[in-house]
Design a protein around this nucleic acid. Sequence first.
DNA 1: CGAATCGTAACATTAATAGTTACATGAAAA
DNA 2: TTTTCATGTAACTATTAATGTTACGATTCG
Lengths: 147, 147
Amino acid sequence: MKKDSRLSSVLHALLHMAEQDKPVTSDILAMCMKTNPVVVRRTMGLLRNAGLVTSERGHAGGWRITADQNNITLFDLHEALGEPTVFAIGNRQDSPDCLVEQAVNSALDDAFAEAEALLIERFKTVTLANLAADFAQRHATYRQQKE
Amino acid sequence: MKKDSRLSSVLHALLHMAEQDKPVTSDILAMCMKTNPVVVRRTMGLLRNAGLVTSERGHAGGWRITADQNNITLFDLHEALGEPTVFAIGNRQDSPDCLVEQAVNSALDDAFAEAEALLIERFKTVTLANLAADFAQRHATYRQQKE
DNA sequence: CGAATCGTAACATTAATAGTTACATGAAAA
DNA sequence: TTTTCATGTAACTATTAATGTTACGATTCG
């Protein structure tokens, strides 16, 4: 399966938007993320449904963050994207009659559930503001190195 | 992409094989797992490379477990399968020049690495013997319910 | 020899994400 | 009010990776 890279994508977009006062267009976000404006709109639309961003049509339109960056966590974004499947590994068959299959699936499901719970907890601790600070740090380091 | 269900598959196969003294053919395993004998051979071949099972050709040939069931963990199988990608979520792009992307990827990679480490730890604690016991338990319960 | 069985290459199918094209809708500027 | 810039969205295509299938060679046993 191809990996779902939308979480990574929207984070990139949001950080770029966070540095702008005016709305950012899908075209600009698409260029900056080397993808297609329709893909941007499709994905950002999910964030809009979750109330994290707004869009404006027409001249000087585009996308804007509405929520406080301290209050947007990775989990909020994951949730806004519809809580997509986390794992690329899974059971061979659902609702099996076979008792062997049930024992196997049960063990695997438990393990995956634990790992997913940890991931979700981690997602809840990281805010957009944290990432912005990390970026600022990297930027400062980068500028120092150039001198 | 489709989920990788080989771990679930080989567990099913191994548990069935564990109950047999003689080798089990790919055809029988395939029927029991509702898949194709070639798929069985392809996947079991990886376990053979890891020394967990052996295969015999010709008449009365087939697959046999060699390792002790107490010493085969889910992790051993995961490893034998080539440690396939665990997550269906990932970064949009590898080795990005963009510092924003670097900050985003770094945060995500950390979270995924933690969750994967937990999963692997869990995998290491579950043996084939554990699953066989769980199956036996389910079987006993099932027989009781029928009475 | 002949049947049973694995080994494996080559190709087809399926499932899921991402990308593209096309066009409708709405808002602001000229 | 017309033009231009933007989002909204449906429909289709492309990509990617797993799984399934066909075909045939190699090996072992009776």
